[in-house]
Nucleic acid binder design. Structure first.
Lengths: 260, 260
DNA sequence: GAACGGTATTACGAATATAGTAATACTTTT
DNA sequence: AAAAGTATTACTATATTCGTAATACCGTTC
């Protein structure tokens, strides 16, 4: 918080970005008052920022109802951010290769603060469909999340667990912090994490952390995802941990040299 | 310009976005001085903005050489902008359908100021590969560009042509403004535009404008793209104008109701 | 068609964030 | 070890933003 109060932090820019951040697939248009309310920015300032963003083409305003949507410039920026993200560029080919070699679904994510950010994903056609969120809070319910948690240092782990609010996503979702801690213990000993239909029914995943070798910090995770219709947990445990750890170490190499 | 000087325009936000806009596939990292020079923002302010963007996670700074790259938050924003852009969402299924029905490569773009912004594209495997730019200035050398130019009102057309700097991309690229005007005339009479290997060798495209029916303005274009190895101009002219104009009118419907 | 409730937009003085110069710290090169 | 480059910090005048409040606009209801 201290950081944000100093002279070398631009509150104005922060507010503008908070406004842009309100728009996504589930919120394709919003009103001015709504934006003001959601961001806590007063109406005049909201008006100024929205006006600015509209003039620059990042947002556009309906002539009829004045509702606000993303503009073409935002679309361009989206493209650029996607293709200009070096970590994505260096991790993608590794995952593609493993995908073609092994013919299994693969997911990857970056740790940012206390959330996982979806990085790149390849899916086999057999995988049940579920719309993956870009930002993931429920670390405790996913293979990648548990892989990260199990390898964080105890202080950080406690900090995350303290703020956790458990949502029972499936019958198998770990129901308490105690169970989560126990599972994390198991994960640590096992060397990789297991998500046995805890996030979506019909889906078993195993996950491993991605490490910045130079800084010795956990920066993300990868997972292999299997439909229960074709794979059993036993099969997976017998055949895939090797693939997973190899993938994790290759990705770790890549992000280490990307200077994450 | 007047607009940008009033009280309801935030110069600070504009500058922050100009900085973010410097990062793309071809510019994955930049230095502070470089950013300051490119944007014309003085070094202290550049420092403040970059610092802000780093703290918010939109940029990240290498510990070693202090070089600046996109951060995870930018990647998320990219995702959101891409999937939250309603025009993309409404145009995509139309193009997908035509693609499956006709088995030909299709491209679409939005007009923003004097440039075309790549919206959505489907390619047949037979198409020669060329990396498409997200932003396109060379309207005169592409089917979509000429389709737009031919349907703009004369004043706007002249404004665009005045600033045009012709680059001879292939032997067939229209070499002068006079030839461009003549071709635009032909395009208008014909009802659709033809790009006969003027942009890339081996590629013939036909294009038609996308119109906002309510506002009666040109808002973009669509094109059908054919490799010369399998299609001749004659074949294309005989068989595909109908497909093209149908597609264009469907897309126009969609963007009209999207209230572009 | 007047009044109402909601939203967006404008006006303006007070509050404060930013600009810009210049000095310092830190790196890399020679 | 000096030089040339880059990044970071200090400091105050100035321009920008804040925030209240007034006004305009739009659609709905009575």
């Amino acid at each position: 918080m201290n950081n944000k109060n100093n002279q070398y932090f631009s509150k104005t820019l922060e507010k503008g970005l908070i406004i842009l951040d309100l728009f996504d697939r589930d919120h394709q248009h919003r009103g001015l008052t709504e934006i003001s309310r959601l961001t806590g920015i007063n109406k005049t300032s909201t008006y100024r920022f929205v006006n600015t963003l509209v003039q620059l083409g990042y947002l556009r305003k309906s002539v009829n109802d004045k509702s606000i949507r993303l503009g073409p410039k935002a679309f361009v920026l989206g493209h650029h951010f996607f293709h200009g993200f070096d970590i994505f560029q260096s991790v993608k080919p590794i995952i593609d290769k493993t995908f073609f070699d092994q013919k299994i679904s693969i997911d990857s994510a970056l740790l940012h603060g206390h959330t996982l950010i979806s990085l790149y994903r390849r899916e086999m056609p057999n995988l049940i469909y579920f719309r993956l969120p870009v930002i993931m809070d429920e670390l405790y319910a996913r293979a990648m999340g548990k892989a990260v948690l199990a390898n964080l240092d105890p202080k950080e782990l406690s900090a995350i667990l303290k703020n956790v609010h458990i949502t029972k996503l499936t019958p198998n979702t770990l129901p308490s912090k105690q169970k989560i801690r126990k599972d994390i213990e198991l994960t640590r000993n096992r060397g990789y994490s297991i998500n046995n239909e805890e996030y979506v029914e019909g889906l078993i995943c195993i996950g491993a952390p991605v490490t910045n070798y130079r800084e010795k910090t956990i920066v993300g995770a990868v997972s292999l995802d299997f439909p229960t219709s074709e794979y059993s947990l036993d099969m997976i445990r017998k055949n895939y941990p090797g693939v997973l750890t190899k993938l994790a170490s290759e990705v770790s190499e890549a992000v280490t040299s990307a200077d994450i």
